[in-house]
């Protein structure tokens, strides 16, 4: 009985704080995405539309570790039974990817562009429960093209 009450409390706490954290994070992501809109990011191997002028290159990267909340963990457990979209984790990974790309861009905000971008995702599970997705790490890296001098 005690465990059940504990689970209910943790779920409720997770629901409220997780919702707030997600909302705040999305607001910040949108704001910063607007700010860095002028800096193009491509996955092509060569820089696009920039001639071999007076430029230099530099490796840039950004990473973030984001954790699920207790409510989402429970919800994902339920969604695992029925199959289909696991919406609980979709927003988590979306947030992590966008944040990582933003941090990469913010390393060199005055670059002409960042090309050859690669995104790496790793789940950092605590490995206690069966298939426990503790948290996810996303690393984005690419080559920034900067004006020389």
């Amino acid at each position: 009985m005690d465990t059940l009450i504990m689970v209910v409390i943790l779920t409720a706490v997770g629901f409220v704080s997780g919702k707030i954290a997600e909302k705040m994070h999305y607001t910040s992501i949108r704001e910063r995405e607007q700010k860095t809109l002028k800096l193009p990011v491509t996955t092509t191997r060569r820089p696009l539309g920039v001639g071999p002028g007076n430029v230099r290159m530099e490796l840039v990267s950004g990473s973030v570790v984001i954790s699920v909340d207790y409510f989402k963990m429970m919800l994902a457990g339920l969604q695992n039974i029925f199959g289909g979209h696991v919406t609980a984790y979709e927003s988590l990974i979306d947030r992590a990817r966008r944040e990582a790309i933003l941090r990469m861009k913010e390393q060199k905000p005055f670059a002409l562009q960042i090309f050859n971008v690669r995104i790496e995702t790793t789940s950092i599970s605590k490995g206690t429960g069966s298939g426990a997705v503790g948290s996810v790490e996303v690393l984005a890296y690419g080559t920034a093209l900067l004006k020389a001098g």
Binding site: V13, G18, V68, D69, Y70, I124, K126, L139
Partner: peptide, 23 residues
């Protein structure tokens, strides 16, 4: 701390730092 954060959700700053340093 990360275990506690797993209940509330959000960024695990400690781990982000750790991984950046290690990298």
């Amino acid at each position: 701390m990360a275990g506690i954060k797993n209940i509330f959700g959000g960024e695990l700053k400690g781990y982000t730092e750790l991984l950046t340093e290690s990298r």
